[in-house]
Nucleic acid binder design. Structure first.
Length: 879
RNA sequence: UGGACCGUAGCUCAGUGGGAGAGCACUACCUUGACACGGUAGGGGUCGACAGUUCAAUCCUGUCCGGUCCAACCA
């Protein structure tokens, strides 16, 4: 075999193995030894997107699960895809067209502009698809779908028409959240509230036929032009006598009724409320109750319309100043008070959202939501961590109708048609004629569907629904319901809830058995990564610097049931070191590999039994952790095994044998090293696919396939050796004490020393005697004495089972030693008195369970022995 | 204002009704033939505060303080 580099080169392995996996069709579902399927649908990233840390975490956790299950022998499918992301994509292309041609979309026909978006999509869209590969994702790319693909369009129309014909979809003139920049309705969930410094404007309204004045307070005086009533609380003694009279709106001099409504609070503001049904959600409701006219004072771009009088064409905030000035001149403005209030902003445009009256399509979600709730309540779908169910429930238990329409061009056009004779009907395909009057003259509704409508159908769509033939080809019955949905908590509302509702509605089955909600990636200070803060960490750069395996391991090691994952590049560097450590461990056994066997030897020695037991414990624990989505635990298990067991002790304890002359022992040890290495590499594969596949290629037998489809190790009952675990623990403890003593007097690591051990356990004594070579190797012990006379000039340490003496030739700083022992006594004494007080407590002895009592007793005995030994030897030093 | 979650080492976070843990950072020593992207040893915490339940509380209950998120209020 060729010489191996001292440090592992991630780049070479990455380009090499991804190609081999993909070309070898290893990502395709194949029947394994388990007769079960496992399927994850990847949350489709936006077509405009660049790979960011959130995606990287998504991919890492999903791909780790997929690789784990694939190795376990499940028929495994990971489905990739991409979202057309209506608003952001259209915005990107509009911007580009404006930059290049100084034209807006309205300078083109709808079709012309859509052609431009498609062209953009072919050219620039989907960079992310290539970037996903760099994360080592193993989806079946043959399943790749785009939410605007024809098959997706068929699914969307099928579902829409179904819901329409059931009467669940309706059209209504309502107030919606209107984004004046996008000039479209947006959903409640797309509105972000921010606290803004504004003012309370106190304005006097005259009462018709009286000298009385009504004082109202508002943050938006300009909406006064749309006032259609003044409301007071019916119980309010201050205003009761005015109910039923007429008020006059200043400036526009509109006469409006003074009405009574319970909504108006007595103690809030002035107790008088101006009612503007056209521009406030609550006022709209009041208006409905009292049959008030609705006046719209805004154009779609957020400027005032004809109702805005001389301010027509001005933006709200500009008109506000002028209107206030006019009110002041007219003597109507009585006070302006500073006020911080929250104002809705569009999460895409960042512009203030206006409640605006418009005709939109809605979906009644009551029954669908109830069913979605029920299926989580009865554990058909389970959330991990379970607490996220609360978020899910809080949304679905009080569902509002879903505004489905968006005034955009890029998206699935609403499949509703209006004929010239005023008939309205829905149709999955472009119809031949009106089903009612057979006219061939009709138009399609110009609006498109909310992007989440197609996303909500995604688990169905990607598996071929509703086309029977495609469903068969894609294995719908095998893979639906999918196994796990992995996503962040920020889209439980947007996405998880919608998929549940739509999956249950169309197939009467939940779309997934489990939902794993992972953390949101933040910077090391816990701030959200954002372009404006410039604190984003680019996964591609991290991959370049530290390798995909290191990045994946870092993200997985940070993923359990936590809410935030604060990422620091230093952490990635740390795990890069871990990956390199494994590489170097391999370099150690590499020259000997050919001298070992493929299987375990018949006669295992103590250390071999120990490492195999440790490996077994690790495998058992990792399997459990993977099933529970505790990637953090799984990572720390394998990390600890590699560093603290395999490298620190087993490799060190193998050097003597590998460089020695006993060929049988040597061959045995190489076989065990090789066996362990193969297992640990397999355990690590889901997190670090590249280095493990690379090392596996060097370790595997001729007849074995690639690691990606080899066995994931599980617990093996015949490889547990508890006695060896226990003995080895004591050995490690004593060696650590020896090193500790050496270090306390600055003995060089090279220098050999004599060690005297004193203990009462004969069995343990024999074990130590058999382990002389190991003491020499790991503690640099020249001669090991057990029992006999205690060395006169020496330093000393005690465990609960063994006293350790290190004789010293030169000058010993007695005071220093006494101080050290005293400190140890203090510590041990504290522990001891704690347990002793328990044993002396009758109530404890009476009520505590037997195994707790015996555990405490055992501990007390050990500590007592240790304490006794420390004290006895302290007096020796003091004399 | 309501709800959810959280408060454990300098930082990021695990954890359990019965001996306080990990990673990173830190300190000292060491270029020992897998690895300085390394090794060995070590320091560091009233487990947010107070009260209660219990033989026993970091863990259970309550109150308070602090934080994050969601919802509401947006006159």
């Amino acid at each position: 075999m060729s010489e191996l580099e001292k440090t592992y080169s991630s780049k070479d392995a990455e380009s090499k193995w991804y190609k081999i996996w993909e070309e070898g069709k290893y990502f395709r579902p194949r029947k394994g030894k388990v007769d079960e399927s496992f399927c994850i649908v990847m949350p489709p990233p936006n077509v405009t997107g660049q790979l960011h840390m959130g995606h990287a975490l998504d991919i890492t956790t999903q791909d780790a699960l997929i690789r784990y299950k694939r190795m376990k022998g499940y028929e495994t499918l990971f489905i990739p895809g991409m979202d057309h992301a209506g608003i952001s994509t259209q915005a990107v292309v509009e911007k580009q067209v404006w930059k290049e041609e100084k034209k807006s979309r309205h300078d083109f026909t709808r079709q012309e502009f859509l052609d431009k978006i498609w062209k953009w999509k072919e050219e620039y869209g989907g960079i992310i698809k290539h970037q996903q590969r760099s994360m080592g994702a193993s989806p079946d790319w043959d399943y790749f779908m785009f939410t605007m693909d024809p098959e997706s369009h068929v699914a969307v129309n099928k579902c829409f028409v179904h819901l329409y014909n059931e009467g669940l979809i309706y059209r209504d003139n309502r107030l919606v959240n209107w984004d004046p920049v996008l000039q479209s309705a947006i959903s409640d969930a797309e509105v972000e509230f921010e606290n803004v410094q504004g003012n309370f404007y106190h304005i006097h309204y005259k009462v018709k036929g009286s000298d009385e004045l009504l004082e109202v307070a508002t943050t938006r005086p300009e909406t006064m032009l749309g006032d259609t009533a003044i409301a007071v609380n019916p119980e309010d003694s201050r205003w009761k006598h005015l109910i039923g009279k007429t008020a006059i709106v200043p400036i526009c001099n509109r006469e409006v009724p003074i009405i009574a409504d319970d909504y108006v609070a007595l103690e809030k503001g002035t107790g008088c409320l101006k009612v503007t049904p056209g521009h406030d959600f609550n006022d709209f409701e009041i208006g409905k109750r009292h049959n008030l006219p609705v006046i719209n004072i805004l154009n779609l771009d957020g400027t005032l319309n004809g109702e805005g009088l001389e301010w027509e064409g001005q933006k709200c905030h500009k008109a506000r100043k002028d209107i206030c000035k006019r009110l002041e001149e007219l003597g109507h403005l009585v006070a302006v008070k500073k006020h911080i209030h929250s104002v809705g902003h569009g999460d895409r445009s960042k512009h203030i959202i206006e409640p605006m009256l418009s005709k939109q399509w809605f979906l009644t979600t009551n029954d669908m939501a109830a069913k979605a709730v029920e299926n989580v309540e009865n554990d058909t779908t389970k959330f991990y961590p379970k607490s996220w169910e609360n978020t899910y429930f809080s949304y679905l238990r009080s569902p509002r109708d879903w505004c489905l329409s968006r005034q955009l061009w890029w998206g699935h056009q609403i499949p509703v048609f209006y004929c010239k004779n005023d008939h309205t009907f829905a149709s999955e395909t472009i119809p031949e004629e009106c089903p009612e009057c057979s006219t061939k003259e009709f138009t399609q509704d110009p609006d498109v569907l909310d992007t989440w409508f197609s996303s909500g159908l995604w688990p169905l769509t990607t598996l071929g629904w509703p086309n029977k033939e495609r469903m068969e080809q894609k294995g719908f019955d095998t893979f639906y319901p999918t196994s796990v949905l992995v996503t962040g908590y920020d889209i439980i509302f947007f996405w998880v809830a919608r998929m549940m509702m739509m999956g249950l509605k169309e197939e009467n089955k939940v779309p997934f058995d489990k939902v794993y909600i992972h953390a949101i990636v933040r910077d090391k200070q816990g701030r959200k990564m954002s372009k404006s803060l410039g604190n984003g960490i680019d996964p591609l750069e991290m991959i370049k610097e530290y390798g995909t395996d290191a990045l994946r391991f870092t993200l997985a090691a940070g993923s359990g049931y936590n809410r935030n994952l604060n990422l620091d590049p230093e952490k990635i560097a740390g795990y890069r070191n871990f990956i390199n450590k494994i590489w170097n461990a391999f370099r150690f056994i590499h020259p000997f590999l050919e001298e070992g066997e493929a299987s375990l030897p018949k006669n295992l020695d103590h250390h071999e039994k120990w490492i195999l037991s440790q490996l077994n414990l690790t495998a058992a624990s990792m399997n459990e952790s993977m099933e529970d989505f505790r990637f953090d635990d799984a990572c720390s298990d394998i990390y600890a095994f590699v560093y603290d067991k395999f490298c620190s002790w087993f490799i060190e304890l193998s050097k003597n044998i590998l460089y020695g002359e006993d060929e049988t022992k040597k061959a045995n040890r190489i076989s065990v090293l090789k066996y362990c290495f193969k297992k640990l590499v397999a355990l690590l594969h889901p997190f670090a696919p590249y280095i493990t596949e690379e090392l596996w290629a060097n370790l595997k037998n001729e007849d074995e396939d690639l690691l990606i489809i080899s066995d994931f190790p599980g617990a093996q009952d015949d490889l547990n050796f508890p006695e060896d675990l226990e003995k080895m623990d004591k050995f490690i403890e004593v060696v650590t004490k020896i090193r500790n003593l050496r270090s306390s007097v600055n003995i060089s690591p090279k220098e050999m020393v004599d060690i005297h051990l004193f203990l009462s356990d004969k069995n343990l004594e024999n074990y130590y005697k058999d382990s002389i070579v190991s003491f020499t190797e790991l503690g640099k012990v020249k001669e090991l004495h057990i029992g006999g006379d205690k060395p006169k000039k020496s330093i000393f340490a005690a465990t609960t089972h063994t006293e350790v003496f290190l004789p010293l030739e030169g000058v010993i700083d007695i005071d220093d030693q006494i101080k050290r022992i005293k400190k140890e006594i203090e510590k041990t004494d504290k522990d001891y008195s704690k347990v002793k007080s328990k044993l002396d407590n009758e109530k404890f002895m009476g009520s505590a369970p037997a195994e707790v009592v015996s555990g405490v007793k055992e501990k007390a005995q050990g500590l007592e022995k240790k304490l006794e030994s420390l004290k006895k030897n302290l007096t020796m030093f003091e004399n």
